[in-house]
Simulated assay, not measured.
Amino acid sequence: MISLSVIIPTYNPDAERFNKTLNGLKEQTLSFNHWELIVVDNNSSSGFSSQVDIAWQPNSNIVHEPKQGLTFARLKGFAEARGAIIVIVDDDNILAADYLEQVLHIFNKESKLGAVGGKSIPLFETAPPEWLSTFYSNLALRDLGDEVIMEGWSNKYPQSAPIGAGMALRKTALKTYMDKALVGKVKTTDRTALSLSSGGDNDMVIEVLKAGWLVAYHPALTLQHVIPAKRMETGYMAQLVNNTNRSWVQVLDSHGINPWNKIARWTVPLRKIKAWFTYKAWKNKVNFIRWQGACGTFEGLADSL
């Protein structure tokens, strides 16, 4: 019986990193009979399917989602999933060997739990610059310690809410999010080939909370997140922080919990110039990236007007 569905949305993945992700799943302590693997190909180049070996998992399938964007790929996976529990795995995540077994244990123990995540530990392909740790959260890296944290809806976003990498969800808790998607009310499409925006994880978590479920951070869940050299470059990080800040404002606004005042579009260039000096963006890489983040926030606040 399939109890759990692992969904990997992917677009032209790096072959070496993707194989590490698959090898991590191959080594899971949970019997293959109890879970399935769904790889969602989101418009990758031709020949992708023939390059992916998932035959080792008898309950596996590669499905295609022609609409570009991580949100669409995830929704495709959700629709295909047979398990009562869904685990989202990025194509650069390596789950600890007991990850899936721990997920089932946690959900069986906590009947009101809708979504849970754990530790996302960096696996750097090259030595990281010292300043990078300032932006770990933007890279979906986190470690909140060794205590379980569980929260419900309090009209604000919980600091312990699960991140997309390795997020496990009860499929019934996803109903309102999927219903919203069916009528075209899911506004964020997350990352695409041209954008580093995010927000889909947050949107899902808020819908789960609003539906009356709890969310949790659980230290028993650990994964490694592979960080290649490109993602440690200043230009990449500046675009990432800019795009994620912009989409973060948009998600909060869509749920009526945006704490900042909206701004007129014409004021954005002036605010960016002022922020350049406020953040002293010329001084170092951290300041420059933070300035880019402020620019993304201004754009998000203007978009929401």
Score class of each variant (00 low, 15 high):
5 S>A: 08
5 S>W: 06
5 S>K: 06
6 V>G: 07
7 I>C: 08
12 N>P: 04
13 P>E: 13
13 P>R: 15
13 P>N: 13
15 A>F: 06
15 A>Q: 14
15 A>M: 11
23 N>D: 15
27 E>Y: 14
32 F>L: 14
32 F>M: 07
35 W>H: 12
41 D>P: 12
41 D>Y: 10
42 N>A: 09
42 N>S: 12
47 G>T: 11
49 S>T: 14
53 D>G: 00
56 W>E: 10
57 Q>V: 11
58 P>G: 11
61 N>D: 09
62 I>E: 04
64 H>I: 15
66 P>W: 00
67 K>T: 13
71 T>E: 12
77 G>E: 02
78 F>C: 05
80 E>P: 02
80 E>V: 10
81 A>V: 06
90 D>C: 02
90 D>V: 03
92 D>C: 01
95 L>I: 06
95 L>W: 08
96 A>R: 12
100 L>N: 13
101 E>V: 02
105 H>Y: 11
109 K>F: 00
112 K>N: 13
117 G>R: 00
118 G>F: 01
128 P>I: 09
135 F>A: 03
139 L>R: 05
142 R>E: 08
146 D>C: 05
147 E>N: 13
148 V>A: 05
149 I>N: 00
153 W>N: 02
153 W>E: 01
161 A>Y: 08
163 I>E: 12
163 I>R: 15
167 M>R: 09
172 T>R: 12
173 A>T: 10
174 L>T: 02
175 K>C: 05
176 T>M: 06
180 K>D: 07
186 V>F: 07
187 K>E: 12
187 K>Y: 11
187 K>P: 01
190 D>R: 04
191 R>H: 07
192 T>F: 03
192 T>V: 04
194 L>M: 12
200 G>L: 14
203 D>H: 11
203 D>G: 06
204 M>H: 03
205 V>H: 14
209 L>N: 07
213 W>M: 08
218 H>C: 00
219 P>C: 09
219 P>S: 08
222 T>L: 07
224 Q>R: 13
228 P>F: 01
230 K>R: 15
248 W>A: 14
249 V>Y: 07
261 N>V: 00
266 W>P: 01
267 T>K: 15
268 V>L: 07
271 R>Q: 15
274 K>Q: 14
276 W>I: 06
277 F>A: 11
277 F>C: 09
277 F>M: 05
286 V>G: 00
288 F>I: 01
289 I>L: 08
290 R>D: 14
291 W>D: 04
293 G>Y: 01
293 G>D: 03
293 G>P: 01
293 G>S: 03
302 A>G: 00
303 D>K: 05
